[in-house]
Amino acid sequence: MTVWSVIGAGVAGLAVATELVARGARVQVFDPGGPPGPHGCSWWAGGMLAPWCEYENAEEPVLSLGQDAIDWWAERTEIHRRGTLVLANSRDLPDLRRFGRRTEGFSDIQQGEIHDLEPDLSAFRSGLFFTAEAHLDPRRALQDLYRHLQAKGVTFHRKLAPARLDNAIDCRGLHARDVLHDLRGVKGEMLVIRCKDVTLTRPVRLLHPRMPLYIVPRGDGVYMLGATMIETEDSNRITARSMLELLSAAYALNPAFGEAEVLEIGVDLRPAFPDNLPRIRQLGGTIYANGLYRHGYLLAPALARSVADLALENKRSELVDEDRS
């Protein structure tokens, strides 16, 4: 029986391995970083399953491919189906209207309804509520996939994959630039804060002229605050400006965030192709699955299904890059 070798144990690699195993394939995984951890950029993600919100500034496949993600993850980890709340400061209301025009799947809500959903945000007068969206804790999701795969007998090799490997599926993210030359890194910066004084139960996006700032509750007063998008490949540190902008967004949502403790600062590079959409390529006998950009958890299930379709059934989905195979 064929053994498939998945290279890379980030969200892409683990989702691909999970999908292959679910279809009865034998799988081994290589990652020199070991189990899921801060060495992979999916560790630093927001974990929003928000295809309708993301569609505001992305091409159509993000919406069509992202919608099944919620159910895929619900079978494998804990998810919270509480929707997404999109808000704007009163001076940025034109941005809220524009956001609504560019997407679908929401209802316009006013102050009273905002208060009913999130009492700690009742200072906002109008917003958009994306009812069907969900969120998860990305670290827990990675660990759940990892444990599930181990329980299914998948071997994890804590080392680089051998150079010549049959039936390899390369999910190394930005490390695959040695082969995928049109892959670039887009810097993202995030904070994890703890603030017992504010209770939010769903992801909240605060519209901002330059970036989508969001806060995702992780439970127990812990929040993930993200995320910048900067066209640079220097991933060493967060800048003061980014930190100011992220914290200002939290402060604007509720000034009580001013007393939050900063628990973590995360900086990493998202792997992206020029159109910011994921791709599957077959090169020299290896399948490359990459380019999840800011949609790791949203699009990994669709990417994984497409990889499994290609690997096991030789079916080519729209994610398979025809030109290069």
Binding site: R184, G185, K187, I230, E231, T232, E233, D234, S235, T239, R241
Partner: peptide, 10 residues
């Protein structure tokens, strides 16, 4: 300004 240090690909 913001991309300083590493926007090579972009």
């Amino acid at each position: 300004r913001r991309e300083a240090g590493g926007g090579q690909t972009f």
